[in-house]
Amino acid sequence: MTTETEHVDSVKTYAVVWIALLILTALTTGVAYIDLGPFSVVVALTIAVCKMLLVALFFMHVRHSTKLTKLVVLGGLLWLAILLSLTMADFATRSWIGA
């Protein structure tokens, strides 16, 4: 059994993260009204990833968690990568042969 001391972030940190999330949400909405062509999706997903990281690292305490917890988070992301990459192995190659 490992013993851990629970790290507690200050209220100020949580407030800053919350405001950052609100700003990023507003940014997502704003960007949706600008035609960036194929980059619209790229920008939207980049902002979404930033928000996800803020929530995971601060609100879900991953930043100060044990290595095992970080491994669990990385495992989840790896499995998401498997889902996306092997699905794209189909979608991105349908025009090759015998589609």
Binding site: L86, A89, D90, T93, R94, W96, I97, G98, A99
Partner: peptide, 11 residues
């Protein structure tokens, strides 16, 4: 199902 042949081979 209409999945690409390349994906079929990989899977």
């Amino acid at each position: 199902s209409g999945q690409s042949l390349f994906a079929g081979m990989v899977f």
